[in-house]
Structures are given as structure tokens and as C-alpha cells.
Design a protein around this nucleic acid. Sequence first.
DNA 1: CTGAAAGCGCTTACAG
DNA 2: CTGAAAGCGCTTACAG
Lengths: 352, 352
Amino acid sequence: MKKKELQGVKEIARRANVAIATVDRVIHNRGGVSEKTREKILAIIQELDYQPNLLARRLASGKSNRLVALIPSATPELDFWDAPRRGIQRADAEVRAYGLRVDELFFDLNDKQTFVEQTRLILANPPDGVVLAPMFVEEARAFAVACQEAGIPYVFIDSNIPDLPSLSYIGPPLFESGYLAGRLSTYALRGAGRVLVVNLAADLESFTYRRIEEGFRAYLTEHRRACLIDRIDLHETGQTAVSAALSAYLNNHPDLDLIFVTNSRTFLVARFLESSSLPAKPMLIGYDLVQKNSHYLQQGTIDFLICHQPEDQGYRSIMALYQHLVFQTPVEAVHYMPIDIVTRENSLFYEN
Amino acid sequence: MKKKELQGVKEIARRANVAIATVDRVIHNRGGVSEKTREKILAIIQELDYQPNLLARRLASGKSNRLVALIPSATPELDFWDAPRRGIQRADAEVRAYGLRVDELFFDLNDKQTFVEQTRLILANPPDGVVLAPMFVEEARAFAVACQEAGIPYVFIDSNIPDLPSLSYIGPPLFESGYLAGRLSTYALRGAGRVLVVNLAADLESFTYRRIEEGFRAYLTEHRRACLIDRIDLHETGQTAVSAALSAYLNNHPDLDLIFVTNSRTFLVARFLESSSLPAKPMLIGYDLVQKNSHYLQQGTIDFLICHQPEDQGYRSIMALYQHLVFQTPVEAVHYMPIDIVTRENSLFYEN
DNA sequence: CTGAAAGCGCTTACAG
DNA sequence: CTGAAAGCGCTTACAG
């Protein structure tokens, strides 16, 4: 009978003439091993091209990891964050069997304080990794720094704070996304053309909106020098405020060709356009296939929505942490999502 | 000292007053257990909401699975299949640690025989699952039937044979994809408009091209009744043949507004358009961001490319089999990919 | 029909 | 600095 061939640490231990525990020590750099035997073992590992069995490792160690995802809560009005959440849950389901668990925490997009409170809760019971939507820039920055100090890896999702050393940013390339909006807008421009950029958000300091607008303007500057570009910034995101501002603008500029809304609140503008009786409806371009936007896309009030695969963003953010924690695989520092153009015709399959 | 609490099968065995092996038997329906103890054990499993530890299961069983992916080979001229392949390899890397392995086999898109040979090889050494691009419909059908008989699950990727009971189809919704092309084409139509549909493939019997064209025509019929639609079918996919056919057509119809190519060989048409000196270049819409297409998209010769996330298709096809084999999770019979519109402006991030 | 035991490839105290 | 042993939660012969 042929003798059974040993595998893995056992075989290494046999060849090095040491105990398995010693092999384990050098594999994990736990120290307490003489340089001589250390090198002998290392050499054998090389020679055998040893690949640890991760199943066994995890089973034996009994370790499991807890991740926290801190994202805005979806509301009936604005369900954007349902999509990343689905992705997060899909990832959770896939890796649960391997000892990873994801806790979801939510904050209110209109209330900084809810964000701050959640970050406090997280730090009080530190997880092994964090997925974070840094909508409130300063507060997110403070939290990120705290995570760093606690040695907790974090990944940014959907928007970025580029100068922080996150494990990864998973989201759109903002400038280019705006640039594409610029290109799409040219389908509507007659003659010189008049364009309105609309920013609707509680926190307008966000890097996000500025970069998108820069990209948008860049395209038009390059291709439509004569085009006139105005802007409306609104901290209030209620329908009344939005309608009032647009109404006032359109009174002065009935010749408007196009409105570009820099985030998912595009439906607020669409709603206004539907209710007002303009001689010629301007083209409307915005972001994200949320339910209300989908409605106006079907109606034809919204012409294009730009999307960045929000579900996949959620999925990938968890998987990045998973790869990092379980496999110690290097993770790409920036994963730009594709910039998708969604129209009435392809919207059905975009929602999956 | 509090007594250690048992987990899993051990705890079940303790409560049922049987050996662990017996618990294992009922969990896996291996039979050879009296109805009475079987029911007792089942009840306890219910009560405990027992979830097997898949790590332990796989480690103990020592089982591993081999998958085979049979896809067209990428060529320097047409590198489309590089993308699904990358996805397949990414999935392979992710699940390798869990005992799944993927072998890749390739066939020549211009040579049915290479496909048939590969299927023979596969059946001679049956894998645990197959990913299959059924470009050659009849041959793929025969192979699928053979797989069924051998009890091997298979998933179709990129194109479908709907009446076969594949584990899953992962690819575009063809009709809707063509329908979107129809919508995009209307940007080019002046007046009634003249449109040319071009099919370029060795096997034109494919369900794929017909459905795409149906969708395309459906949009135009609904929205542009007066539009004239011609078609060129070409079994030869060399540049000379393509150029000759287009040249002849354009001589008779210099007023052409738009060309729609139903697959990734769009660059053949673009190349012809660049070399010929037409008074007004027709708009060109085609499929897939392959390298040559990307080039002509940058040039502006191609206006739109429709894409279906080919890398993700590869990734998901392996993962579907993985879920099925390892977790016995139900898999969705059809997973339609999004229909993406790629322009010069967003192409960079589409390639990842 | 049922059980006791070895083992999957690791990690983790514990002892020396 | 090093080793022997128990154990992670399962599965797999093997014995009865």
C-alpha cells in the first residue's frame, strides 16, 4: 500500500522536522521561532508553492467578521438607496456561510445629526470593516479618521472623499459623468442654446455636485462655446421650493432648452414641468432610476437618466471588504462604475 | 464552569439521543433510518433552525467541482470574448478557495467543427457543470441534450436557446435591445428616413439576430411608419465582402440615414465608411465595445454601441453554477443583462 | 437500522 | 523557542 501523502502544514512540518504549530507560527509571522528554522520552513513553503486552505483556516479559527454599512435610508419619495442596499444584502447572503456578517445602519439625508449619531454607535462597538456613504463631508471625514485610528478599514460608496486613505472608493467617475450629460444635452440644443443646471441637496458643499457640474460645463465649453449656462442651487428639497425657483427662472427665460439635475431628485423638476404649461418643454436630464424618475421617464418628461449601477456598488463594497479581511487580497483603491445612459426603452432591464 | 454548548449536528444528535452519523443520514436523505428517529431528528432540526456549516461540510467531504466554460475564442480582430472570459476568471479566483475549478475551452466562431470537437471532449470527461455560448444552434442543442442525459447542469451565456431547460440564461433581452437601437436611430432620421440593417455572421440561423432585428423594426414601425428599412445578410465576415456589399448598396441608395449592425462586427462597416468618401456619413449603431469598435467610436464613425456587460455575464454564469452546486440555491432561469448605451464619452469607464 | 472513530487542514491554548 | 493534543463542524468508511 502506498503511503498516504500529507498535505499542507502537515507536509511542511514533516519535511522541516518541526511541529505543525511551528509552521503555523511562521506562516502567520507570530514570532517566537528561531531564524534558522524559520528560514527552513519558508524555503519549503516556497518549494511546495503552499496555498493555505482557507476553508480549514476559517473553520479552525472560529473567527467571524462583522461589517457595518452606513448609508442613507430610502424613503417613499426617494428610494435610491434601496438599490445599494439590495446589493449589500446580496453580498451578505453570499458570504454569510464564510463567517461574514453585515449590519446595516441608516441615516437621514436631511439630518446631519442622524449621521453623527450612527457613527458614534458604530465606534462604541467597533466592527471589522465599514461601508460608508460620505454625503456629509465633514462628519464623514471625522468618522473616517476615527476608523483609521481604530484600525478599521472603510470603503466609500457612491461618493468619495479623495484625500482620505479609504480601502476603496466604489462609485462613479464624477467629472466624466457630467461630461456625458453634456454630450447628451447637445441633442436638445438649438442654435446657441440655453441650459440650466439644478443642484438640489441639503448639503451642497459636497464635492460630488461640483465635479459633476465641472464635467458638464467642460463638455459644453469644448463643443458649444456659445451656449448659455445658468445654475440654481437649492438647499430645500421640497416640491414647493423647487417649483417656485423654476417658475421664477422660466418666467425670465422661456427659451430654455435643457435642464440638467445633478442628482436623483430629478423628478421634482419633472413634476414641475408636467404641471406647468410651457410652450416647448425643455429636455430634462438627471440621475438615477428611482421610482419617481422612472415614472417621468416613461411619460417622456425626463429624457435621459444617468446611472451608476447602484446595486452593484453595494455588492462590490461588501465584497471589497470581504476580499480584504478574509483573503488579504489587495483591493483596488478606486473602482469606477460605468456611466450608464437610461432611456425609456432600456429602463426595464436596468432595474433588473 | 458552565458546560460548553454543543452546536450543529452534535447538538442535534445529543437531543435526539442518536449518533452523529444518523443525523447526517437524515440531513442528506441517505435513507437507512427508521421513520421514527427520522422524524424525531427532523423535528429538532426545525426547532433549532439548524443551518449547516458549509465550510465544515466542504472540508470534511473533500469534494470539489469542476466546471467547463465553452466559449468562442477571442481573436486579434474580434476580442469580444475576452470580456466574458475575464469575468469567468474573476469568478474562478473567487470560488477556487471553496473547491470549484473552471476549465476553459474555446471554439472558432467560423468553424462549427471546432465546437463539435470540444463538446465531444467535454462529454468524454464529464464536468459538474457547463457554461455554454450556443452560437451554433443545432450543435449546441445536441450538446445540451447530452448534458441533460448525463445530469450535467448547463447555463447559456450571451445568447439563448429558449426551449431548452438550461439552469439559466444569462444575457441580453434581445428584442428590447433591438428596440432600443430603434429609438437611438431616430436621432439620425430626417424626414421619412432610410435605414439599413446589417447581419454579419457565419451562422445566420441564430435566433439572436432575428430577435434583435424584430425589436429594431418594431420600434420604427411604432414611431416612424414611413421609414424604409433594408437589410443585408452576409455569411462572409471578411472586410472585402462587407465593403463590396455596402458599396453596391450605397450606390443605389446614397440617401441612407443609418446603418444598424446587429453584432460586434460593426467595425467592418465603420472601416468601410471611413475609406469611402460619402457626401453625408450615415449614423452607425452597432454592438459591443470591442477594441476595433472602440477605435471607431472615438473617431466618431460609430455613434452608439449597445452593450450587455459581457464581463459580468461571464462572472454571473460561473456564480450561478456555483450557487447551484455548492449551496443548492435555486437559480433564476433567466437573468437579463442591462442594455447599455455606450458613446465616446462613457466608453472609458465601460471597459472598466 | 445504528454507532464509534478517524479525519478534512487548519488554529489554539497549554506545557515545557 | 518548540511540540503534543484537542478541536472547529462536518463526512466517511467500517463494524455491528
